[in-house]
């Protein structure tokens, strides 16, 4: 089964259970990369349906302070894209994994080689925050060939024509950015997120998940009433940073994820 097909199957199963998807984000290399398998294990056990693994980049312009700091810690620990892929080759994660990051990482690795290697180690797709459809012909071809899903971002500022293209070209799901801004926990889910999701759903049957600023079970619950899933990043990254050194960190992460997951079933 290709990565795309695995993601399709995941959303289909969720629909069958009348649940939204809980999509969890963590930075590879924060905590140290050798703990990533345990982190993924705890996320999956807690109930995450899909996990996005952040590939740290030195200049993360789409990220707020929490993920920036996490990326820098990961880079200081010497985390490289090669080491991340190597680590994933030894993990058998029960939920689909996506790699999330910035285009220069892929470009430097070699797009063809990156996609091939990612697919080999069981990654289902990618999310590139600074890759917009009109620049990405080559990447679309490469990811299609390797079976990787190409999750595209849609923003509240995207024009109808852009939403057409995004809905048509995205695979796996469309990442609806809840607000103009960078990643980071916020107090509420803005009304424009709902509008964006319905605009996207009117265009294609690709699932739509909402992220940026989603940090509490209430947000997840709200979002799952109008979208296919909710994406939680900064909250989990901050939690791992605060609790990662405690002996019970895995249980604590599982509990947090379980609380977030429960909200997708409401």
């Amino acid at each position: 089964m290709t990565g795309r097909e695995r993601l399709e199957a995941t959303f289909e199963a969720l629909r069958g259970r009348r649940e939204g998807a809980l999509v969890a984000f963590v930075t590879a290399g924060d905590p140290a990369l050798d703990r990533l398998p345990a982190v993924l294990g705890a996320l999956a056990e807690g109930g995450a349906d899909i996990v996005e693994i952040g590939v740290p980049f030195s200049d993360p312009i789409a990220d707020g302070p929490v993920i920036q700091a996490s990326s820098f810690r990961a880079l200081e620990r010497g985390t490289t894209p090669r080491a991340i892929l190597e680590c994933l080759s030894r993990v058998d994660c029960p939920v689909p994994l996506l790699l999330m990051g910035y285009w220069n990482t892929v470009l430097r690795f070699g797009p063809e080689e990156f996609a091939t290697r990612a697919a080999e180690v069981g990654v289902c797709g990618t999310i590139l925050c600074d890759a917009i459809p009109e620049e990405m012909d080559e990447w679309f071809a490469v990811s299609r060939r390797t079976g990787l899903a190409n999750v595209l971002l849609a923003a509240p500022t995207s024009s109808p024509q852009r939403l057409d293209a995004i809905a048509r070209l995205a695979s796996g799901f469309v990442y609806a950015v809840s607000r103009t801004g960078v990643t980071g926990a916020r107090d509420e889910v803005p009304a424009e997120a709902r509008r964006l999701v319905s605009d996207l759903r009117a265009r294609a049957s690709t699932p739509v998940c909402v992220g940026f600023g989603v940090s509490k079970p209430e947000h997840v619950g709200d979002i799952c009433r109008f979208a296919d899933g909710a994406i939680v990043g900064s909250r989990l990254v901050a939690h791992l940073h605060e609790t990662g050194d405690r002996p019970d960190w895995e249980a604590s992460l599982r509990t947090l994820v379980a609380e977030l997951k429960a909200a997708t079933r409401a």
């Binding site: 312009i61 789409a62 285009w103 220069n104 925050c129 600074d130 890759a131 917009i132 009109e134 620049e135 595209l152 971002l153 849609a154 923003a155 509240p156 500022t157 995207s158 024009s159 852009r162 995004i166 950015v177 103009t180 801004g181």
Partner: peptide, 14 residues
């Protein structure tokens, strides 16, 4: 050259 930016900015660049 080109544009490698978050989608949010593209309409403003246009």
């Amino acid at each position: 050259g080109g544009r490698y930016v978050p989608e949010t900015l593209v309409p403003a660049l246009d």
